[in-house]
Computed example of a mutant assay.
Amino acid sequence: MTDEQMMMKSDNTPFTNESLVNSPTTDNEFLHAQINALKKQVRELSFLHETSRLLTSTLDVDSVLQAIMNQVRDYFLVEAASVALLDERSETLIFRVAVGKASQEVIGLRLLPGQGVAGWVAQTGRAIIVPTAHEDERFYSVIDDQTDFYTHTMLAVPIQIEGRTIGVIEAINPASGEFDPTAQRLVTAVADLAAVAIRNAALYERVRQTERQYESLFNESADPIIVLDLEGRIINLNRQAIQLLNRPRMELIGNDIYTVMGLDLEVGQQIIEQAQPGCRFRAKLHWTPPGEVESHTIEMYATRINYGGREAIQWVGRDITERIALEQMREDLTHMIIHDLRNPLG
């Protein structure tokens, strides 16, 4: 073997004096470095996976953010971690969740626009590592001043939805003594997950609010309202409908409207087929209530709706029997007057 061959690495690249001093000199060392890098990557992915699973645990935003901050605290071994959300009306940051030291003092703290490191991050939309907090002019020391907690180093990242900053995550005093770019990248990924949780909670609350408004209007309506599935079975009905049908609610739920009201099956199915989203199908039904002899005339409007994630038919009815009787009386009276005018001596 020549001297030149002896000075070649296993990958056929030559050793230099610098590589002999500063680089791994064996394949085992290189492999060990690769394994450590893979272990670190797996640990990071596992952390993000476990954090993402928290999003499905509950739709209560404070509970989700609390769990996420616990993850951040345990992974980075920080003394404290917190989430502040932007109040759009007052344009202030309000700390909603905090874990670790001085957490009770932090929750509820308000920062004005641009105040403190968190305020600066919210205002600029940029993440920041502050190596020495008390030497940074942006640092807001009120918590340190009021407690025995001392902030050494900070990492703050924005929580953003569609490019708009809605909050800030802060992590303080890692056990390692400093945050590196990897920590900033991971906490930024956590902020993205927090944004998903906040958006999901907001959408859920909006849906619940809409449902509550519908239920309020549904129950307080002066007209009978019946919700049917596409087979004509009663899913829900309001108080006026129960009063009209004159039967207990539990007897009506699950029964088909044709049997309950004695309707012709073909007519009822035609009404359901004609009812379409966004438009009302109008029909008049003649129906004799239980225990009565005379038939009632029901003016009914049917429309197809989304009810709890499934298609349904909403019937809004109105008993117009008295109105028809009054109209008939008025018409008879009009004919009588006209007859008397034409035949004054009759």
Rank of each mutant, 00 (worst) to 15 (best):
R138T: 01
P24R: 12
T51H: 05
R73C: 06
Q115W: 01
T13F: 08
T16F: 05
N70D: 14
L111R: 11
K40C: 12
E18I: 07
W120T: 01
L48C: 04
Y75R: 10
L55W: 07
T132L: 14
P113Y: 00
H32V: 08
K39D: 09
H134F: 00
V72I: 15
F30N: 08
I68F: 05
R73D: 03
F139E: 07
L65R: 00
V72F: 03
K39P: 01
E44L: 02
K39C: 08
V121W: 09
F139S: 08
L93R: 13
F139V: 05
R73I: 01
T58C: 11
E44G: 04
N22A: 11
T124K: 15
Y140T: 02
V61I: 06
V97I: 12
D74V: 04
F95P: 01
A37K: 06
R126H: 12
H49I: 01
Q41E: 11
E44A: 11
V83D: 13
Q115F: 03
V61H: 00
V21M: 12
Q104W: 05
T26N: 14
L59W: 05
E18P: 00
P113V: 01
A127V: 03
S52Y: 09
R43L: 09
L112I: 00
T51K: 07
Q71K: 11
F30S: 07
V72Y: 10
G108R: 04
L55P: 05
E29N: 15
S23F: 11
T13N: 11
E105V: 08
D74L: 10
E18W: 11
V72N: 03
L45S: 02
P14R: 15
A127E: 12
L45T: 02
